[in-house]
Amino acid sequence: MKAVVVVSLEDAGGDRCVDLIREGAAWFWVECRRDPEDAHGWRRLHPPRGAFPDRAGALADARADVGWLSEAPG
């Protein structure tokens, strides 16, 4: 099954996001950034992390690792 970004949570400045990804029954997350002066768009900062059994597990792990994410709704 193809990986699908289910939700993308952006920081207040709009230059960082965390994507929650579902692939089959597993959930992953990845932090991304974009530079306003670069037309490329979003770039991943690392490979997707996880293989969590549910969305809540992926989000909890992301919140523990990404400081600004604790302020974002999810």
Rank of each mutant, 00 (worst) to 15 (best):
V6Q: 14
H46P: 02
W29Q: 03
S8G: 09
R49I: 12
G67D: 15
P73G: 14
E31C: 02
I21D: 05
R63D: 06
S8P: 02
L45N: 05
D61E: 13
R49M: 12
F52T: 01
D11K: 09
R22W: 02
G41W: 10
I21N: 03
K2W: 00
A12F: 10
V18M: 08
V5A: 14
V30T: 11
P73W: 09
L20E: 03
W29I: 03
G50K: 01
E71L: 12
G24F: 02
K2Q: 10
P36G: 12
D65A: 15
F28P: 00
R49N: 10
L20P: 02
D19E: 15
E31W: 01
V4C: 08
W42C: 04
A56H: 08
V6Y: 03
W42F: 06
P36L: 12
P48N: 02
C32K: 15
A25Y: 07
V5L: 05
M1V: 10
G13Y: 08
R55N: 02
G57N: 06
G13V: 02
W42L: 05
G50M: 05
A3S: 15
G74W: 10
D38V: 11
D15V: 06
E10R: 10
E37L: 09
R63V: 14
R22V: 07
F28V: 00
H40W: 08
L59N: 04
R55H: 14
W68P: 08
C32F: 01
D35I: 05
R49E: 14
S8K: 09
D65H: 12
L20M: 10
A26E: 14
M1Q: 11
L69H: 07
C17G: 03
E71G: 05
V18Y: 01
S70V: 15
G41H: 08
H46R: 13
P73S: 12
M1S: 13
V6E: 14
W42V: 01
A72Y: 04
R44E: 15
H46S: 11
V30Y: 01
L45F: 00
V5R: 10
V30K: 06
L9Q: 05
R16L: 12
W29A: 05
D38K: 07
M1D: 13
A56T: 12
E37S: 10
D11A: 06
R43F: 04
E71F: 09
E71R: 13
L45S: 04
A58R: 06
A58K: 03
D15E: 09
D65Q: 15
G57F: 03
D15C: 04
W27T: 03
G24T: 04
R44H: 11
A62L: 05
L59G: 02
E31M: 04
P36K: 12
V4H: 13
G14R: 06
R63Q: 12
R55Q: 14
R33M: 06
L69I: 10
V6F: 00
L9A: 10
G74K: 00
R43T: 13
A60L: 09
H46M: 06
E31R: 03
G57T: 01
W27G: 06
C17D: 13
S8A: 14
R43D: 10
K2T: 11
L59C: 11
W68Y: 09
R55E: 15
C32S: 15
W27F: 15
G50R: 04
H40M: 05
M1R: 12
A25W: 09
V4E: 15
L9Y: 08
W68G: 07
